[in-house]
Design a protein around this nucleic acid. Sequence first.
DNA 1: CCAAGGACTTAGTACATCGTGC
DNA 2: GCACGATGTACTAAGTCCTTGG
Length: 743
Amino acid sequence: MLVIDVLQSKRRKTAQPARATAADLSDSDDSDAPLGKQLANKKAEIEADAEKEAKKIQAKEKKAKAAPKKKVKDESDDDDDKPLAKKKAPAKAKAKVKTETTPKKAAAKGKGKAAKVETEQDAEAEDEEEEYRWWEQEKSDGTKKWDTLEHNGVVFPPEYEPLPNHVKMAYDGIPVTLKPEAEEVACMYGSMLHSTVNVENPTFNKNFFQDFSEYLDKTGHATDRDGKKVKITKFEKCDFKPIFEWYTAEREKKKALSTAEKKELKKEKDEAEAAYMYCLWDGRKQKVGNFRVEPPGLFRGRGEHPKTGKVKKRVRPEQITINIGKEATVPAPPEGHNWKEVKHDNEGTWLAMWQENINGAYKYVMLAANSDVKGQSDFKKFEKARELKKHIARIRDDYQKEMKSDMMADRQRATAIYLIDQLALRAGNEKGDDEADTVGCCSLKFEHVTLKPPSTVVFDFLGKDSIRFYQEVEVDPQVFKNLKLFKKSPKGEGDDIFDRLNTSGLNKHLSNYMPGLTAKVFRTYNASWTMARLLKELGDKGLKGSIPEKVNAYNEANRRVAILCNHKRTVGAGHAGQMEKMQTKINGLRYQQWRVKQMMLDVDPKMKKKKGADFFELPEDIDQEWVLEHQKALVEESREKIKKKFEKDNEKLLAEGGKKMSGKELDERLEVADELEKKFKKENKSGKVEAEGKGPTIEKLEGNMDKLSQRIEAMKLQSEDKENNKEVALGTSKIVSSPSRKT
DNA sequence: CCAAGGACTTAGTACATCGTGC
DNA sequence: GCACGATGTACTAAGTCCTTGG
């Protein structure tokens, strides 16, 4: 039997017996082992919470039905509801989108108010009641996505503009002239020299140079100043710096434009693109997400992508398929070109599509995230996650049981579901050799899991986007046992942990619990659930407390979700410096506090007795040396500021036709800083600080102290927040819990 | 059943814009 | 009013998962 089973799973290099041996199973029924109870408690807690949650949500659902959450009204603010032609866009745009002023009412489906389509008159009405309430739409069968669809196709990136004659890459120190096509490729590289992640990646360089060489061969070789052939054979001899500098200069030029000029340019661009920004979906105006065709460039695969650095070619109209309503006017391809195909597939939500040349991946033009369709499917996603709440207890019970199954496949599946549920792992589809070597749950390999008896497991692997997942987790003893079993020899490095499991089998099993249940739903569920719980905790105890404390608590909740989902980012280059700056600032405030304390003594020497001598000491971690440094910095800062202001004022005077102020004036102004310096000197010498301000009283000084304390606390929190956040990407989980609805 | 095809969501990063403390 | 960091947006790669066809 064993043999047969192994053969059946030929797909894997190494498989394990379908049935666990007696030895494997002997100790598998001690479900009440020490760790078990810990987790059981946790589980009970989770389940109780989940039930509470479920009730709350049901209640909310009722409420929501009674008073549907109103969609943000900014559409009316922004005249987005009005027909396109009414917008500032002049005649040309009007002609192109003519159909929009006469929406096809015939096509409008749905019931009553929901299907109301805007017309010129009621656009003025600005009535929220008139909006399409997709969240109230009854569920369709989910295949047909639209009845009518009109749009204007895609925007192509500008054609390549050759470099001016004086800008040339150098080969072996000699400036060379390239044919435009090859030059374009050289520019792709030259314009990104600042991106060290890529430029210092050998694979990137190898792939780039390979493709670059092809272009050179294809277009004919480069030439030097005298028109003599230059053979470009070594990457190391290529100097793209002149190109880089030219691009940098161009960018600077653009940056240096006045705000008015920039606005003008932006306006022009917006006008040119206005027609593409929106489409008409069942008669409703909807924002298109990515109507711009991706420009050519070097492929920037993440992690150790074997194809990173290859040339991503310019996409031609002949590669693009348009999807559009049967009745609609098909957007014209650029002069002298044709579309690859025009489809009328109303079971798809895409408007245009092409295949990219590097991986053969499909690229789609779809609606924006804030459109009705996307909103609807987002909504559905959360509905599904909420439905999981009803089944989660049973699923968890089942996987606990099945983890002891004597069918290897079931045991693996149960263990995998445990990991997906508890650690928020992704499903982990199989990947090809021509992709970065990353894994998810089902594709975990031998070397990604290390067992530390009695029941700790170390996960260390690269997940999506080659983001490292590293966690030492105390797991259910059965999970530990199973993982040990799944790693048993003859398995070794490179072999799958779950050799009898793949994502489709896993999802098929999950769908038995609930239609549409797949591995990714667990991530949504656990992220939402965690956020809800933390926010509730925040609500319970966080209501009191200062604003910074509340912000900090909210960020903390957000962070915990991001951590759960392993949302990471690369630590910014300036992070360490910024942290140091903050600390210096905090210390500066603390020093300031110390000074205020001395002032108190100045006002009332008896304070020393009252408060105790300790109170008036410098904080331990601040020494005299630091104080001197700090004083110097303060004085210097003050000087700089005065100088800057002086120069500014002078410029202004000149501009107004006046004349510059004398150096004497500057000196006079600088006296403030000099005095500050003197004051510090005096303080250092006498060890006393004269009370500042007129009529200083202990009360006033106490007030100053409080203010400083508050600022210190706020800064400390802020700095803590920053440090804790340095490698956590908050954006994604923020989107998950409250998607932007701006139009 | 499996691999390839296809459509859609998820995610990090680069860059633009905003807002705020000095 | 400005510089700077925080926040938002655009871009597109990298996942998930369903369908299709042999």
